[in-house]
Amino acid sequence: MSQVLIVIALAAAAAIAAVVALYNGLVRLRNETDNAWAQIDVQLQRRHDLIPNLVETVKGYMRHERELLENITKARGAAVAAQGVGPQAAAENMLTSLLGQLRVAIEAYPDLKASANVLALQEELASTENKLAFARQYYNDSVMRLNTKIESFPSNIVAGIFGFGKREFFEIDDPGARQAPAASF
């Protein structure tokens, strides 16, 4: 009789240990995903901060590009205001493509291209876009791992009990945006 009790106790202990391990694994993945999203936020914020500075610096030189600069300022405003993963991704993609146009436009102004100030700003902006791309890549990796874990047996049971939800990918619609942005000029 006591042997049966011991076996039952051992089985229960093993089951609890397994649940704890699965739960901790899920928590770790969820934290990783949250951190990855926070990193994207940091880079978006940084980009929003850099843009007015860049526009201000190049405005004086780029008389023929007034419209482009206005569009960039508008797109920035829209990106700052965007809420939720989907709309934000769309607004940021718009901004990315406009900044690409600005980069090409700057090529036509030799004075501007050579200015140390503009060069430093461009390096910062290019690197921020790189960081954004890498942060997005890491975020999507984390989301995929989390979602796979939530769907697959046996962690799906634990995920169901404790209410772990699947996350949304940070999608890019524009295939051109997949290309990491220009790094140097």
Partner: peptide, 18 residues
Amino acid sequence: NPRLYNVVEEMQIAAGLK
């Protein structure tokens, strides 16, 4: 060297290092 520093930060982010 902002460029070197930026490249290190980019890869830190890609690797998910804190």
